[in-house]
């Protein structure tokens, strides 16, 4: 028999070795890009916050302060040194996890941020959980029924969900569950050490407001993605092999459908992190967002710098992980960025 069209077997083995090699190179390249991006971001943030008008010492001491008092505070904060020095000092601190002292309270910033993360971390994860719990069933259901009326209703629902901003939803939830039904707290946070259930209770409404909107957005992507897979030839092949429609979708469809969804999941996570800033304001939660906003109000620029860099780093790392993940899931995906 003629087998002219068959490449040799060791061809495939060597291709696999090349793939692993490529993967390693890809990782190195992406990490290098990450470091450069973070460096540029830090320069940008530092530059914006320090070159543009508005002297922190003046703002902290108020308009009544004498020029000598302002000069003294400026010196004390190290703000009279050359900008490059200030930048290097700050960046060195960041790298060694010494985030510096607050301009306002003179207290170290790191523990304050740590305490804030105890609120923001669970809030973001809770929001993600809520979002996925909504998006996956809603997206798949509206895809399966996309030609029927029920599918139209489902995707209409998602469309409405996208239009309601999370802070409006948060306030509406407060009205229903805190003001009317009085089952959950309207604002504030019970610390984890005081009561775990109390802490969880104070995060329920915020997590729902945060996750619902992201879930609606994600549901649309999932729907599109699943609709596309449902029409794919290989799903028909799966049926022709003897799989029932739902089996075929689960065994062959969902993994394929998840790839385009994964690419937006990174963006959604950044959306959740930044959405948490607003949601914390709605529910007066003492998280990273509240800390950021109060630091902005107090001109505590060093704290602002630290938090902005922390959030930017998180977003970038999350995106890198997502990028890696879907390259691992999809063997066709080239590793050349």
């Amino acid at each position: 028999m003629l087998i002219a069209d068959l490449p040799k077997a060791n061809d495939i083995a060597s291709r696999r070795r090349a793939h692993v090699h490529e993967l390693r190179r890809f990782l190195v390249r992406r990490l290098a890009t990450l470091v450069i991006t973070l460096f540029l971001a830090s320069v940008l943030v530092f530059w914006i916050l320090n070159i543009l008008p508005g002297k922190p010492a003046q703002v902290i001491l108020g308009t009544q302060a004498t020029p000598s008092a302002v000069a003294a505070l400026t010196a004390k904060l190290g703000l009279n040194r050359p900008l490059v020095d200030q930048y290097l000092h700050w960046i060195h601190g960041l790298l060694t996890l010494h985030l510096g002292d607050s301009y306002i309270s003179s207290q170290p910033i790191a523990p304050v941020i740590g305490a804030a993360l105890e609120v923001t971390g669970p809030l973001v994860l809770g929001g993600l959980l809520v979002g996925l719990l909504i998006a996956i069933p809603l997206g798949i259901a509206s895809a399966i029924h996309h030609t029927k009326r029920s599918g139209v209703v489902l995707s209409g629902l998602a469309q409405v969900g996208i239009a309601v901003p999370n802070f409006v939803l948060g306030i509406l939830l407060i009205i229903v569950f805190a003001v009317d039904l009085k089952v959950l707290p309207a604002s504030g946070f019970t610390t984890w050490s005081t009561s775990v259930t109390g802490a969880l209770e104070s995060l329920v409404l915020p997590a729902i407001s945060l996750g619902l909107v992201e879930g609606a957005i994600l549901a649309r992507y999932i729907r599109t993605s699943v609709v596309e897979v449902l029409g794919a030839d290989f799903l028909r092949t799966a049926r022709a092999k003897g799989l029932r429609p739902n089996q075929a979708l689960v065994r062959h469809g969902l993994r394929n459908a998840s790839i385009p969804v994964l690419t937006v999941l990174g963006l959604e996570l950044s959306g959740l992190i930044i959405g948490a800033v607003v949601i914390e304001a709605v529910f007066t939660l003492p998280g990273l967002g509240s800390l950021l906003l109060s630091s902005v109000a107090n001109r505590d620029l060093i704290t602002v710098q630290d938090i902005v860099m922390l959030v930017a780093t998180t977003v970038l790392v999350v995106n890198l992980i997502v990028d890696l993940l879907y390259r691992i899931i999809d063997p066709r995906m080239g590793l050349r960025s």
Partner: peptide
């Protein structure tokens, strides 16, 4: 990679 809202908060600061 810089969320719009974060950029805005930085600039407002």
């Amino acid at each position: 990679s810089f969320p719009a809202l974060l950029a805005a908060i930085t600039l407002v600061a």
